[in-house]
Structures are given as C-alpha cells and as structure tokens.
C-alpha cells in the first residue's frame, strides 16, 4: 500500500482525518467569526460580512467619525540610532558659523552660564529633535521658538552636528558630586518609573534622550515640572510626562541636584 492509496476518499483514515479536521475548523470559524461577534451586545454590525471582517481583524475606519483635532501640535520627528551619525567636516563648519547666534544663552563653548542647557558634546539626535520641535511648535519657549522658526532642515542638521562635535566641558560652577539617589539608579518600579539612568546615560542611553550630567539644576527642575503639568508635550509616547507626573517633588529635586553635580566627562562616548 503506498501513499497513493492514502490520499483518496476511499481510504477511511483519510476520510476521518480530513473530515474531522475540516469539521472542527468550520465549527470554530462559525463560532469565532459569526456567533461570538453577534453575542457582544455592545457592538453593532451592519451585516454578517461586517462581523466577519471585524473578527478577522480587517483594518477599517468607522463611518462618520473624524479624528479629533489636536489642540496642540505633536512632535513629528523620526529618530533612529543612525540619525546624523556620520557628519562631514563641512557640516560641522557650517554649524559653527550658525552657532554664533546661540552663544548668547548656550555659551560660546557650548557651556551655558544662563541656566540654559549645555550643548557641547550633546548627542546630535537630541539637538536635532528639539530644534525640529521648536520649529514646528511641538515645543515652545519664548526665547527659543523665534530662533528656531526660520531654520532650514539643513541648518538644524548642521547645528546638531556642530554641538555634538564639541568636547564636553565641566559645568561653570561645579558643585561637590552628590551620591546617586534611588530615583536615578532604581527608579520607582511600583509607580512605573524606570531608573533615569536607563535612558539618560550612566546605565544605558536610548536614542533621543540627552545626557544630563552637569546641566543646570534649575533648568532640569523646570522641565520636569513642565512635563508633569503637561505644559511640555514633545515626548512622543508620553514617556517623560508619565514619569514626571509620578515623581514626588523631592524626587525631582534629588534627580536634578544629582545630575547637576556630575561632571559631563562620565557620559559614554557616542559610537
């Protein structure tokens, strides 16, 4: 007896095997695609085909419903870990010229004396994202927004490359280094707060997250409060808003004070 005698309906094993399998499939399909969708009183289907498409997961737009208008602009920047990873010397040079207009707040060497962020050696992707967000209005600031609004894509990329190229310098008034607070190294798992260090360096760095060592304490505190209140909202998945909302005022103080006291040369080098 060969397999030729097997794959025929004359063979009882073939009949039974295929028959039972097909029957189970048909019964479960009827239950899953027709009976159960209609068993949900809170969902209305136009007809059977509508129910089947819904159960099969066919993407569909609900009729007559328009997407709610966004009250505020959202960040539209797409970053990958390769964004601006291979800058040319020319791009850095053009960035250096453009950066002269930034020096009044961010310092001629990219280190600020005015509680603005230190940009020297910041990751290029970070500056790139923030400038785009200031330009599009996803992030607003009375001083920064007018500067950003007229920048071209090329200028933003050049500025980002220039600042990323600068050496990281110690902050202007270094304070004694503070011990690591729990919020930085452990986070608060029960409140859904990951350790700061798991994105902002020291443990790991995630694309788009700045390093924070030696940044102005006042600036970091202000940003955490802005995230918590929803005033700042250019974190695309609300990751910083969710974290800042769950942080206690003491934790915000501790995190800002800790990072401000660290020298920036401990930040991991960019690949």
């Amino acid at each position: 007896m060969s397999t030729r005698d097997l794959f025929t309906f004359r063979n009882s094993h073939f009949r039974t095997g295929v028959g039972i399998t097909a029957a189970i499939f048909v019964v479960t399909a009827i239950a899953g695609f027709i009976v159960l969708p209609f068993a949900q009183p809170w969902v209305q289907f136009a007809n059977i085909w509508d129910a089947i498409c819904s159960a099969a997961g066919v993407p569909q737009r609900a009729a007559g419903v328009t997407a709610p208008e966004q009250a505020k602009r959202l960040s539209g920047v797409v970053l990958t870990s390769n964004t601006l990873s291979r800058p040319s010397q020319e791009a850095i040079g053009r960035g250096a010229t453009l950066a002269q207009r930034c020096a009044i707040c961010h310092g001629p060497t990219g280190v600020s004396r005015a509680d603005s962020p230190n940009l020297a050696g910041q990751y290029a992707a970070v500056i790139y994202k923030e400038l785009h967000d200031f330009r599009s209005g996803a992030r607003t600031n009375a001083v920064m927004s007018p500067f950003a609004v007229n920048l071209t894509d090329q200028e933003i990329a050049d500025l980002s490359n220039y600042y990323a190229y600068l050496p990281r310098l110690p902050a202007y008034h270094p304070t004694p280094q503070l011990p690591k607070p729990n919020i930085v190294i452990y986070g608060a798992p029960m409140r859904g707060i990951a350790p700061c260090g798991s994105c902002h360096g020291s443990l790991d760095n995630k694309t788009g997250s700045p390093w924070l060592e030696g940044q102005s304490e006042a600036y970091m505190k202000a940003q955490l409060h802005a995230f918590a209140s929803g005033e700042r909202r250019n974190d695309i998945s609300q990751q910083m808003r969710n974290i800042a909302r769950a942080m206690t005022p003491q934790e915000i103080e501790q995190a800002a004070a800790y990072y401000a006291s660290q020298p920036p040369d401990v930040v991991k080098a960019v690949d």
Binding site: T28, A29, A31, G32, L36, A55, G57, V58
Partner: peptide
C-alpha cells in the same frame, strides 16, 4: 491588538 478576535478564538479552540 493586531490579531483579529476570530482568529484568537480558533487558535484557542485548537
């Protein structure tokens, strides 16, 4: 969310 409920049911039954 990317898998339809009907297929989830069939897989559950199998």
């Amino acid at each position: 969310p990317q898998v339809g409920a009907g297929f989830k049911f069939i897989h559950s039954a199998f």
